[in-house]
Design a protein around this nucleic acid. Structure first.
Length: 465
RNA sequence: GGUCCCUUCGUCUAUCGGUUAGGACACAUGGUUUUCAUCCAUGAAAGAGGGGUUCGAUUCCCCUAGGGACCGCCA
């Protein structure tokens, strides 16, 4: 058997959404698991809607999540001539025919069928008609001569055997009257030209597969194996589309979802391997198989994406996390000042415990990143006169320390607690609010040690008066 | 309307005829803790319904119901 070859074939008519991303992932994982190849084909034959920027976004998205395609991108529009030639060959072989029906005529038939509530199927008017009857002024389309009798069985690698009556598949158009090929023709020809062994794609292509198999058969081509994966549904159970919010990659990267987390989430959405939840990239390649793909559609669950992300944030190396945070802030928030980098890096050990996303880390480290404290007004009210006195006492006590450490801070705080007849909270909370602007945040020692002494004095003096 | 597909906790899923139906997320409660979190422990939570087949069905078959996809001179 030839080496496994799969492909992902998006059309650049919009940004890639995560359903497509998962399809790409499954194709890629399958080929890598089998030691095969994975290709990217850009189906850009819809001139009106295809955009270069979308193509770039698709490639960027794949790269972001860690999918690399083998070889160059296969650009479908460059192969149109091949597709047309195959259409002509089918015509010559009598496997296809010219149809002189006008779009209006077809439209009319559909309308009538709908009114009568009978299923519409093209009436095959020109299937056996002679050329001599052809109206000269109409440019014909070329239709494929689909099988009329019997039934076909698709041995789907995910769905099992699917049987369908051949007469429910109409004589579909393979060449438009402007001479351009249509999807089912182009896809079949390209998959053949690219020597695809396995076509893994969304459930929504099932009927196309029956059409495409007939094209393969008409040309005596090897038929690849097919696996139709269930679609991803929105929370209200509908097919995910580009227009749904939180569907494109940007929606996730901008809130600070890590690519490995999204990859892991997508892998487990509709696929499973025993009770295993966390898969490293290597493991996902090692364990991926088609048997593990479920048959029913699955819904997108944001809280799971977040918790997966939380897991990766807590478990990747802090150096790596810092690089990701730095890139994230520069891209979506503000650039981290070089002078602050070291402080943030050191603080990551406690910051990451409070975060599900990079955005959370950013928010929690804002008091380090920004020079000015932005106060929560409600929290600021908690600083009463007694608190102010504690704050000033604290400032006075640390002002003659050279360096701050937990060892030399602890006695000071304990003394303040005693002198003011309060508890840890009575001292910690005013300091936290004064330094970060919020009563929520890291432990007070962590906060103090993540700031410069001058800065601490400045901030506390300001709120203490 | 036609064709095809799907149906286990709220969600993602395990189970390949015999299980107290398991795990994860989310949720609830308790503990740790200077706040918020983290962390730990515990808990609640499911086989759509009805028929068969079988000693025994979540698992196999049929019907019903519900949901979905497709039905373009888009891809």
């Amino acid at each position: 058997m030839s080496k496994v070859a799969t492909r992902f074939a998006p059309s650049p008519t919009g940004p890639l959404h995560i359903g497509g991303l998962r399809t790409a992932l499954f194709n890629w994982l399958y080929s890598k698991n089998k030691g095969g190849k994975f290709y990217l084909r850009i189906e850009d034959t819809d001139k009106e809607r295809s955009k270069e920027e979308h193509k770039q976004q698709i490639i960027k998205s794949l790269t972001w999540i860690g999918i690399e395609h083998d070889g160059d991108e296969y650009i479908q529009s460059k192969k149109i001539e091949d597709h047309v030639n195959i259409a002509l060959e089918l015509l010559k072989k009598g496997k296809a025919y010219k149809c002189y029906c006008t779009p209006e005529e077809i439209e009319e038939q559909k309308k009538r069928a709908k009114q009568k509530k009978i299923p519409y199927i093209y009436n095959r008017k020109w299937r056996d008609a002679g050329e001599t009857e052809a109206p000269k002024y109409i440019k014909p389309v070329i239709r494929f001569k689909s099988k009329i009798d019997g039934s076909a069985i698709l041995k789907d690698l995910v769905q099992g055997d699917i049987e369908i009556e051949n007469n429910t598949i109409e004589d579909f158009i393979i060449l438009r009257n402007d001479g351009t090929p249509t999807y089912n023709l182009s896809a079949s020809v390209d998959d053949h030209l690219m020597n695809m062994t396995h076509i893994i794609r969304g459930d929504d292509h099932k009927i196309n597969t029956f059409k495409q198999i007939q094209i393969y058969e008409a040309l005596n081509w090897n038929i690849p194996k097919f696996a139709h994966i269930p679609l991803i549904h929105t929370i209200d159970g509908k097919k995910l589309s580009k227009r749904d919010n939180a569907s494109t990659l940007d929606d996730y990267s901008k809130i600070g979802i890590l690519p490995e987390a999204l990859r892991n989430y997508l892998l487990r959405l509709g696929w499973s391997f025993e009770d295993k939840e966390i898969f490293s990239l290597k493991e996902s390649i090692k364990y991926f198989n088609l048997q593990g793909i479920g048959k029913s559609p699955s819904k997108l669950d944001m809280s799971r994406i977040l918790s997966m992300n939380e897991h990766y944030i807590k478990n990747i190396k802090e150096d790596e996390l810092f690089i990701k945070l730095k890139e994230y802030c520069e891209l979506f928030k503000e650039k981290i000042d070089l002078k602050k980098e070291e402080k943030i890096k050191q603080s990551l050990s406690f910051l990451k415990n409070k975060a599900k996303t990079l955005e959370d880390i950013y928010k929690n480290s804002k008091y380090i990143i920004l020079n000015e404290v932005s106060f929560n007004k409600e929290d600021l009210k908690l600083i009463d006169n007694k608190s102010k006195k504690i704050i000033i006492d604290f400032v006075n006590k640390i002002s003659n320390l050279d360096t701050l450490s937990k060892d030399n801070l602890e006695p000071i705080i304990n003394e303040l607690i005693k002198v003011n007849e309060t508890n840890f909270k009575g001292v910690g909370q005013p300091l936290r609010i004064g330094l970060t602007g919020s009563k929520f945040g890291p432990g007070i020692y962590d906060i103090i040690l993540s700031l410069d002494k001058d800065d601490i004095v400045k901030r506390l003096t300001k709120v203490g008066h």
